[in-house]
Design a protein around this nucleic acid. Sequence first.
RNA 1: GCAUCCGUAGCUCAGUUGGAUAGAGCAAUAGCCUCCGACGCUAUGUGCCGAUGGUUCGAAUCCAUUCGGGUGCACCA
Length: 559
Amino acid sequence: MDYKKHIAERINIYGVDADEIYSSIALPPNSEMGDYALPCFKFAKILRQSPVSIAEKLREAYKTDEKISEVSAVNGYLNFKVNKAGLAYDVLNCILSTGEKYGSSDTGKGKTVCIDYSSVNIAKPFHIGHLSTTVIGGALYKLYKFLGYNVVGINHLGDYGTQFGKLISAYKRWGDKDEVEKGGIHAINDLYVRFNTEADEEMENEAREYFRLIENGDREANEIFEWFKSLTLKYVQGIYCKLGVQFDSYAGERFYTDKMQPVIDELRAKNLLRESEGAQIVDLEKYSMPPCLILRSDGASLYATRDLAAAEYRKATYDFDKCLYVVAYQQNLHFKQVFKVLELMGKEWAKDLVHVAYGMVSLEDGAMSTRKGKVVWLEDVINKCVEKAYTVIEEKNPELENKNEIAEKVGVGAVIFGALYNNKIKDIVFSYDKVLSFEGETSVYVQYTCARANSVLLKSGELSAVPENYEPNAQEFEVVKQLAVFPEILEEAAEKFEPSYIARYAVDLAQKYNKFYIECKILSETGGKKAFRLALTKVTLQTLKNSLKILGIGVPDKM
RNA sequence: GCAUCCGUAGCUCAGUUGGAUAGAGCAAUAGCCUCCGACGCUAUGUGCCGAUGGUUCGAAUCCAUUCGGGUGCACCA
């Protein structure tokens, strides 16, 4: 179904190879001009002819065939019109036969991708700032699987640092076992907030001491810590379940405690380590970066040290072809440094490490702060969205069965989609108005389109075979073309680590289908026309479902 | 100060391996349910694509400078 390739193979330009012709083929601004176009301007110098005459000569030489029905030369562009009936027939049958696998491929066969995402902090509830990494990572996870990769989802737990000393100190001062059991993670967080507001020098010292106790294997400190950890994991599991994300490993920072020394030894052996102001660093001045700190002046390890150990461990354990870090752009420099240090250590695989950076989330009145307790919890956002969905269903479709289940799919979908619809690098100012808006370019719009398509299919009875030689009209053909590019869109999304491509694709397809739906009758038609339109409806529904599924969004049959 | 990202319609954003008249949604106005789901569709308008210069047959897209904003920059993670 690669029409560009088909065209490129049939054009000969002296001194230009087929690959270059292939990559030069573009899409005309509107479909009346054609379905594909080859701009001939860049060939003018090589051939020493005007683009207009080149296009004209190529047009004369091109023999139309079963795929390309018309070729025209316009102002230096060579425009191609495809055989609409043929394309429509191929696309519909392809989707009908592949079904929920439509768009999948084996490009990733034999390759492994590690994705480090979500990476929750122990004892901290999920707030909207954690949403992006979780759903972007989750979507990439499902996308790579769909493309045939072996994928390893890693939740690099934030379970290391003096903050855990603070927590234990706070718990021992004010905590109560039953209250924490009952209040769960929010009760722990309250203790943390209280510690930060009341802490003086003495308490800070106590916290450092407790952290040291955890490190040295003190039984009581570790018991409390493990208890907090299990409460946290139980809690996040509920959220992950709703968001449809999963992990294959929960190896967090503490996991690397005993894996850092070999890295430090290697750095020293390779003469990369240097003392500076009492600390051990890798100097990166040559690369116009500040130094990468490996050991503090008191000998303790740092964030970067653990990330170096983690990268080594992942390479040794999973032998990845790519390792992605879905982490906010605040850490651009950190990852640049870590990757550079690994490169300097001679790890040829350092080039396979990718920081998938995304924008930050703030509130309308400024940045969030867990320590100050100024946050929007993700559960609240999800709950409000689900409630809103329920209210809308109650209003528009009160007879519906399973209203709770459907409201859940719609509400959760809106939360996920809102976080995935824009380019990931964009900052987000969180507002309830925005996430609760269900109109326009939203998952609800796509889900509604699915419900509409599904309703048509329910009323249609058995589908007959797609008619051959059916000449689609303009609206039908727009849908067909959009359906056909789905596999390409997925490849691009994977290549650019950009789930938003898929979200936008789904909205585009839904828009094109809705335009078709309004313009064209389906059920009251007969014969080939009806068969074609029903098939078009069925494969559109399938493709919309496939797109949303990758994003972790479910599609209700009715809503 | 150095590094890095962003700047497109009133708002939120697409569009950037250079290509033909710069597109959506929201908001506004006017329409469309005796007809397959109106959470939908149609029509109407707004743009020195932050600015300047350069490269090119051609620049929102590439380069340089500049302005505005975000983020990061030594013992937190």
